[in-house]
Design a protein around this nucleic acid. Structure first.
Length: 299
DNA sequence: CGCCAGGTTAGAG
DNA sequence: CTCTAACATGGC
């Protein structure tokens, strides 16, 4: 007799190298992160699709990730959603070997890719979350940005309880769209930042913007659409488009981190000019975001 | 105490 | 088009 087991686990292979250690290190970067919980060899995260909410336990291996939906019986749709979410979150479909091949054109980059082999750009599959997080982090240092996000998520995000632990979801646009911006002031958000966050939520709640709609647009169209919202400038739009849709060229070459990294690695006694940086990046056409990630990692 | 931090906006020149 | 103050606060 057959026993039918509900398929709650799934293996997702990475296209090319995948380093569990390096990617977990990135996920562990803030103790105030509520949207996932990292342990020795994996991460726990709550996901929601329509009315279904579950926690996913994601084990990281040298080959990719192994997902298991815990604490209930997900629908088939949910399972599909979770799988797609993990693919995008860990950038599993990107062929990193193609980047490593491009990196051999440059001595410094080939050393970095060897050193950080399997390090991937951890994404943010939800555009609303990407934009909101970028705005929260504007103009302030990263630890403080995480503090603000923690308060924002704690007050407005739904939570899923599993084995005596709360797993948080990023607040939904529908909720933030309807609050008075003043409600964020006691949490040390600036008045300006509070208004921006509500503006952004309203654009998503009304359906004017959505992850799906902007996915269909060209990079320039999507960027224009995002920058039409108050509080979303060039940097924020680029950042969100890179983290959600993985446009490779959405990183500003003016970034100080890139300049410092190049200066260090090339033993220069000054920062490179913008022109030198532009020329350097030409070697990695189509892989600018990854080249940037590895340069940052070298700092 | 001063200055910058994963910026952006409105307003002035 | 370019320049600047304002925004709130933490960390060094």
């Amino acid at each position: 007799m057959f026993i039918f087991v509900l398929m709650k686990t799934f293996q997702l292979a990475a296209n090319g190298a995948f380093s569990p250690e390096l990617n977990l290190t990135f996920l562990r970067r803030s103790p105030r992160e509520l949207l996932h919980l990292v342990d020795d060899d994996g991460v726990w995260k709550a996901l929601k699709l329509d009315q279904e909410k579950f926690v996913v336990r994601v084990g990281l291996t040298n080959h990719g990730v192994a997902g298991e939906i815990v604490g209930g019986k997900p629908s088939k749709r949910f399972y599909t959603y979770a799988e797609q979410y993990l693919r995008e979150w860990f950038d599993l479909d990107t062929d990193l070997n193609a980047f490593y091949a491009a990196a051999t054109k440059d001595k410094i980059m080939s050393l970095l890719t060897e050193q950080f082999k399997g390090y991937r750009i951890i994404g943010q599959p939800d555009l609303y979350e990407s934009i909101s997080w970028a705005v929260i982090g504007q103009q302030i240092n990263l630890p403080f940005a995480f503090t603000l996000k923690q308060r924002f998520v704690e007050q407005f995000g739904e939570r899923v309880r599993y084995k005596q632990r709360d797993h948080y979801l990023f607040p939904e646009a529908r909720i933030i769209a309807s609050v008075n911006p003043d409600i964020l002031l006691p949490h040390q958000f600036s008045r300006q930042k509070s208004k921006y966050l509500v503006n952004i939520a309203q654009a998503f709640a009304s359906g004017d913007l959505s992850t799906e709609k902007l996915r269909e647009m060209s990079f320039d169209e999507a960027k224009e659409k995002l920058m039409a919202i108050k509080g979303v400038g060039n940097w924020t739009a680029n950042y969100a488009l890179m983290k959600t849709y993985r446009y490779p060229n959405a990183f500003p070459l003016e970034d100080a981190g890139i300049h410092n990294a190049i200066r260090n690695l090339k033993n220069m006694d000054r920062k490179p000019t913008l022109d030198e940086v532009t020329r350097y990046f030409k070697k990695f056409k189509g892989w600018e975001a990854y080249a940037t990630l590895y340069l940052w990692k070298s700092l």
